[in-house]
Design a protein around this nucleic acid. Sequence first.
RNA 1: CGGGGUGUAGCGCAGUUUGGUAGCGCAUCUGGUUUGGGACCAGAGGGCCGCGGGUUCAAAUCCUGCCACCCCGACCA
Length: 484
Amino acid sequence: MSKQNEKEKDFVKDITKMEDDFAQWYTDVIKKTDLVDYSPVKGFMVIKPYGYALWEGIQAFLDRRFKETGHQNAYFPLLIPESLLNKEKEHVEGFAPEVAWVTHGGSEPLAERLCIRPTSETIICSMYSKWLTSYRELPYLYNQWCSVVRWEKSTRPFLRTSEFLWQEGHTIHETAEQAQAETIQMLEIYQEMAEELLAIPMVAGRKSDREKFAGAEATYTIEALMHDGKALQSGTSHNLAQHFTKAFDITFQGRTGELEYPHQTSWGASTRLIGGVIMVHSDNRGLVLPPRLAPIQVVIVPIAQKKEGVLEHANALYEELKALGIKVKLDDTTENSTGWKFNEYEMKGVPIRIEVGPRDIENGVIMAARRDTLEKSTVERVGAGETIKKLLDTIHDDMLERARISRDEKTFTFDTYDEFKTKMVETPGFAKTMHCGLDACEAQIKADTGVTIRCIPFAQENLGDTCPFCGEPAKHMVYMAKAY
RNA sequence: CGGGGUGUAGCGCAGUUUGGUAGCGCAUCUGGUUUGGGACCAGAGGGCCGCGGGUUCAAAUCCUGCCACCCCGACCA
């Protein structure tokens, strides 16, 4: 394989450079690559086919894993009576400020107003309460794919929208141990999805009490670090203990004959993940999509396609790749020039571009260009299918590794609060530190700097004996960052 | 909710200071030549200048009220 670099430009004119204005770069990328459009209602976005295909990829992976672990899909209603939402105190306090209300049916005012679900714990609990009678029925392992509405004040496509697509799993179990095992199992599936599908390395751990889900006993999270040093919560799994089952009077007759409350979990991942994919992998030329998620994994661009034999060769290659299960597109349109096509597919993040022209046919080769590194190489035509398939895996591995290196480079330790503040401003990223575990200390840091505890990682290290923020004895190691 | 910015053709913008025929680039349509890194020539179509009120012979432009969106903060997946 001979290699040649073609990096005459590392940006395109349509997209703001990320080092100039990261927020604008993000907006440019999603708009120029046709992932979304803004709708007439603020905060509600249209997900266009190319963007929706990314969500379908995430859905397919998770849905398969959910089912492999014994879960079933169901569907619960969009509207929740106010009285149900109000049953769990912490929950309603957490969500009330951002729920949307339905007050009329046609022109008639409703006797009780209905909220559009911001999440479905309450409606699902009301049904579980009706259904559950015996320990023999447990566990309930249900999931639903739906959208929820949270009336956000400031919104950004994928990262924070007033309506977003997600899945929410809701399970109840006989024992606390089973619920805890379920909570952790689902978090691990999210992490597996992030790393194997999205090529995004995650830090997994528990949320502080301040950051946990409204109504949860404990919230677990996977956190990713973006190009700009801000963290993105990418999936959460909650152990709800008996908070909701008691509030909703969900009971069953246990093995001893006594009435018991089951132990509950809920877990979710949303279209926000797509924002993460963009902010971790993409560059100034546009999207860089991880191969297993890319709606088009390989695009074949025939060169001088009117010349004899070119299209036939391109077609044969297309069929060969397709037969290997590769999502391949042959662009034999004539409206746009070759150069235009190169730029277009690069902007759209297609992992591999293959060029087939008269010269290559003569030499028995094809040209393969990697989107992630922009490297172009010559591939023998015989056996090209297998070579390309392997290259897709290599690209995935390389992207994951680069993201890991980038994250680690942006992860820092420090000795004093002042040093922490300086580094957070000058080289933002994950701050790895001991913490006292006191809520007042955490609140003070947030008020001072806007930085929050992203998680208390499972992988604990002992970095010292005192909390560098307040001087109290250290309780555990945490990752801190500014967050989306 | 605070601070900043922007609304003019499908998209991106100029024009507004100093009122006087609605402009440019890209995209679109027609015909032709092209095609190994965003092609070229010729022609064509496309506008409630965000919305309402006012000033004026005359308003994209001046005054006034409203609305929407974007960005940065505060709060949340």
